[in-house]
Amino acid sequence: MQNDFNQQVIEEFRANGGVVGGPFEGGRLLLLTTTGARTGTRHTTPLGYLPDGDGRVLVIASAGGAPRDPDWFRNLVAHPRVSVEAGVFRYEAEAEVLTGDERDRAFARAVESDPGWSDYQARTDRVIPVVALQEIPGPPDIAAPSFGAAVKAVHDGFRRELSLIRQELAGPLAPGGAPLGAQLRVNCLTACQGLHNHHTGEDAGLFPFLAGRHPELAPVLERLGQEHLKLAELLEELRATVTDGQPDPVRVRAEVERLTAAIEDHFRYEEEHLIPMLDAAAP
């Protein structure tokens, strides 16, 4: 049975495009829907997650350090095909329980980003499982009432992710200090790939669609296409910085700030000029 707290989080998540308050506020949150191991009933659970790149995210079956694995974990062991809601995106995924060194490396990354995971492990004799959720390719499914709202929601998702990365890079960093953490590297690289994929999709689909129906948008689409090229250069510079041996967090932070400012200017211009057209074209 769904507990009241989880149900409140689920409803808030779905009503606000993945944005929630309370203990999950300002974190990475998804909704995982599994099939009951015994009953076959579908169950949805809000969970924190870690980006893992290449269409994969990690979730951790900590259950707060309880002696037993959580129900959602037992469900996906029995039925690995699951549904995921991340922000406004909905997709099917295949769950894989990580083992051996792969599990240990992933859990170490989690502890590095949040020592609370180590506290949970210390409370229980079981080895806390780490699960990879690999997205199954399919047509995009975005929970939004219109084309324009979908674009705004996708943009807001990138805004939140860049804000989280900036928060993770904040603090008393100094050249020559601790190197960039492994999980933070993954977060940066995943955001870079996501933005690249988003812009590539717009260049191949959205922009030609609008160009064919609204010739008057030619100067706007030309500017947005040129901005995509400039943003691709910034994304590549951040990627190169993050993968450069022992990257200096101060340098990475500067690259993220530069990228964030450029992305925000680009999104604002795109929303101002394209969303009215997209919403007007809706049936």
Rank of each mutant, 00 (worst) to 15 (best):
A178N: 14
V186C: 03
D156S: 06
Q183T: 02
H214T: 14
G181E: 00
Q193N: 10
A170R: 12
T190I: 08
L210G: 05
P139F: 00
C192N: 08
L206Q: 09
D203E: 15
L217P: 02
G194S: 12
A170W: 11
C192V: 14
Q193K: 14
C188D: 07
D141I: 08
G181K: 10
L189K: 10
P139W: 09
N187G: 04
R166K: 07
I165P: 01
F147Y: 14
E168H: 11
A191P: 01
V151G: 03
L169S: 01
V154F: 09
R166I: 01
L164C: 09
R185Y: 03
F147P: 12
G157F: 03
E168T: 08
L162M: 10
F209H: 13
S163Y: 04
H214N: 13
I142C: 06
L164G: 10
H196Y: 15
G194E: 15
L195N: 07
E135C: 09
A174V: 14
P145W: 11
G205W: 02
E135I: 08
F207M: 01
I142V: 15
L184T: 10
S146N: 06
L217K: 05
E135S: 15
A211Y: 04
Q183N: 07
D141K: 15
G201I: 12
H196F: 13
A149E: 01
Q167T: 08
D203G: 14
A144D: 04
A178Q: 12
L173W: 05
P145R: 15
G177K: 15
T200N: 05
L217N: 00
R166N: 03
N197T: 03
G201Y: 13
P208R: 07
A178Y: 12
I165V: 00
R166F: 05
V151R: 02
R159W: 06
L189W: 02
Q167E: 09
G171M: 10
P175S: 01
